[in-house]
Each structure stands twice: as C-alpha cells, then as structure tokens.
C-alpha cells in the first residue's frame, strides 16, 4: 500500500529524518550533561530540516538550520557554558509542588490531542501544504515566493503580531537586566 504511493527513495528519506528527530529528541531529555542535550537538539533540528526538504519546503529547511541550529542553540550553549555545567544539579528539588504529576497530565493531553487530531480532522491528509490550499509547494525560487505571499498577505496580522511580541521581549529583557544591576549595587552598599 505504502510502497505503491511513495517511491523507495522518499521512504528512506522519511525514515532517516524520523530517526534523526526521535533519537535527538529522546537524547535531549535523557542525557545528563546539558551540552550533550544541546548537541542532540541540533540533531533533531537537522532531522526536521531533512523532513522539510522532503516535503518540498526548501526555504524553511534552510531557515531552520540558519536560525535554530545556527543561532538559537548556539545561545543555549553560550548560557550553559557561562553558568557552568560542572555545578551539581538538584534534580530531586521540585520548585513547584506536584510538578511531575502536572507534567504527566500535560504529556497525556498533548499526545492524546495530537492522535485525536490525526484520526478525526482533515488537517493531516497527506497533502503537501496547508497554506496553499492543497497545492504542492513549488521548488526553488517559487517556494520563497509562495511563502512570502502567504506571510505578507494571508497571515500578515499574525506575522506583525509576532514581530511586536519579539520587540516586547527584547525591550523587557533589557529592562530586567538593568533593574538587576540597580539591585546588585544597592546590596553592595548595604553590605558595606
């Protein structure tokens, strides 16, 4: 059945991508060393990029690597290195009471929701794209054009809202960082 619909090459690509994603994702939560976790997160991101290419979304694949693997995880590592990974972790301490139970409920709800969606809705129909109303994504140059049109016409408000959100986050971060310094200098004066 599957072999009739998809070529062998596509199946191989899919299996490779899926393995990269799953092994990486499991590694992120099971590995003890945070740097190793970050490395396996990169593996997951590469798997997602391969999956994007297989779906014809070349541009998203490239951006996935540039933005997530090339910048965001680098910043994760940056922070991990500054905080020091050699410090002893208190995994048994629960900052929120009963967070493990909440986490378990969250996992069940998310996985259940995803399975229900896959089983019932027509969102996952095997069509190449949702935003182009089922038309397959064009390759190369036209791929960018399709994405640009979608982002700057159909989903303009969502796009602008995201931009505003990011600006707010940056301003907030700067504000918090500065407030921290005021607190520190006051503490120093008190101690002196």
């Amino acid at each position: 059945m599957i072999g009739a619909t998809y070529a062998l090459a596509s199946i191989l690509v899919f299996v490779t991508a899926a393995l990269l994603i799953l092994v990486g994702a499991v590694g992120v939560i099971t590995l003890k060393n945070p740097v190793h976790s970050a490395l396996s997160l990169i593996m997951t991101l590469f798997g997602v990029a391969v999956a994007f290419v297989a779906q014809g979304a070349d541009f998203l694949a490239a951006v996935e690597i540039i933005v997530y693997a090339g910048a965001i995880v680098v910043l994760f590592l940056f922070v991990i290195m500054f905080l020091g990974v050699d410090r002893k972790e208190h995994v048994h301490v629960e900052p929120l009471v009963g967070q493990r139970a909440f986490a378990a409920v969250g996992v069940v709800v998310t996985v259940g929701g995803l399975i229900t969606l896959m089983a019932r809705s027509h969102w996952v129909t095997g069509a190449m794209s949702v935003s182009t109303k089922g038309v397959a994504l064009a390759s190369g140059q036209d791929n960018v054009k399709q994405l640009g049109t979608a982002v700057f016409t159909t989903y303009l408000f969502a796009f602008e809202a995201t931009a505003v959100l990011l600006v707010i986050a940056v301003v907030g971060a700067v504000l918090l960082a500065r407030r921290e310094r005021a607190l520190q200098s006051e503490e120093v004066e008190v101690e002196a």
Binding site: V35, L39, I42, D58, F59, A61, A62, V63, I65, I66, A69, G70, A71, V74, L77, F78, M81, S139, G140, Q141, N143
Partner: peptide
C-alpha cells in the same frame, strides 16, 4: 541546490559549533 546561498549561511552558522565545542 535551489537554496544555494542560504546553505552557505547555514554552514557558516553550523561551523560555530566546532569552535565552541
């Protein structure tokens, strides 16, 4: 590849890891 120059950017981003790690 259709995304040639973006791939170059991606690779220069990835090469940071080698130096960092």
């Amino acid at each position: 590849p259709p995304m040639g120059i973006l791939l170059m950017l991606a690779m220069s981003g990835v090469s940071v890891y080698g130096v960092m790690l």
